[in-house]
Design a protein around this nucleic acid. Structure first.
Lengths: 143, 143
DNA sequence: TATTGTTATACTCTATAACTATA
DNA sequence: TATAGTTATAGAGTATAACAATA
């Protein structure tokens, strides 16, 4: 019945990645929802925390967002006091986005729960396999 | 500068999965766009091809879509002649969705290019690593 | 009463192009 | 001319609840 030209969807990398993401995100979405954070805002916070203040093109790339989406998201996040934009002193076209204390606090507020969610999954899935999976994904992302 | 409570985003499973998906989907999106297919419609076609005619709740789960989204998507796909819905003979609440010949043809039209995209990535990434990655994702999806 | 699917609604993200300001 | 970011717009998906029909 099924078309032999295609791999089983379980062995289709795009579909397998999407299903894996749904599995992993479910508890995180529950956590974020309680704070009125979307997945996208959460990624922006995480990237800013990790990589520090940066221009929007870099931030958009790291957070897997298009620049027009980021513009809108940052407008809201700035209004909510989670981040700030300042003009780049060396290049007037750029603006540098940074976390505010409130933004950092939101991350701290979720740190314990976020770690617990990861640990639970790691325990269930197996620590060695989790490391191997992350290694492979990291390497794929460099392709 | 960065918060030690969080893993590097490269080692955050949700973010790593999303970045991997962006990497993998880019050429597929280009392919689909030429046929006016969205990623979601493509997943519906793939799942119907693989698992045969089925009710919508099952289809939505396998294609990672919510039921209201699927209702809308199927309305369009049915109007485009890609699939058909018939009432379940045994349970009047259900309708069974199936591929039409036109739907199967669309899949066939993209089979060669789809396979080539996968093969190119597999070659670049490494066949053994690709298999290992798919094994791990498949296992994670059973968590 | 529970389940299947549809409809309604509000919100959000995506994708593209056009535009402004600066380099 | 090219780049950084914004705005505009159309299209699409998400999430929830309410609803109808059926079990």
């Amino acid at each position: 019945m099924s078309n032999p030209a295609f791999r089983p969807t379980d062995r289709s990398l795009p579909i397998a990645l999407l299903r894996a993401r749904e599995t992993v995100m479910a508890p995180i979405r529950d956590m974020l929802q309680a704070s009125g954070l979307t997945e996208q805002k959460w990624r922006v916070l995480r990237v800013l925390d990790e990589r520090g203040a940066q221009e929007q093109t870099a931030l958009a790339g790291a957070a897997c967002l298009l620049l027009p989406s980021l513009t809108r998201i940052l407008r809201v996040m700035e209004a909510d006091g989670l981040c700030a934009r300042v003009a780049d002193a060396n290049d007037g076209r750029k603006s540098i986005v940074s976390l505010t204390d409130a933004g950092r606090q939101i991350l701290l507020d979720h740190a314990a729960e976020s770690a617990a969610i990861f640990t639970a999954l790691e325990t269930q899935f197996g620590r060695a396999k989790m490391e191997k999976l992350l290694d492979l994904l990291e390497e794929l992302n460099r392709c």
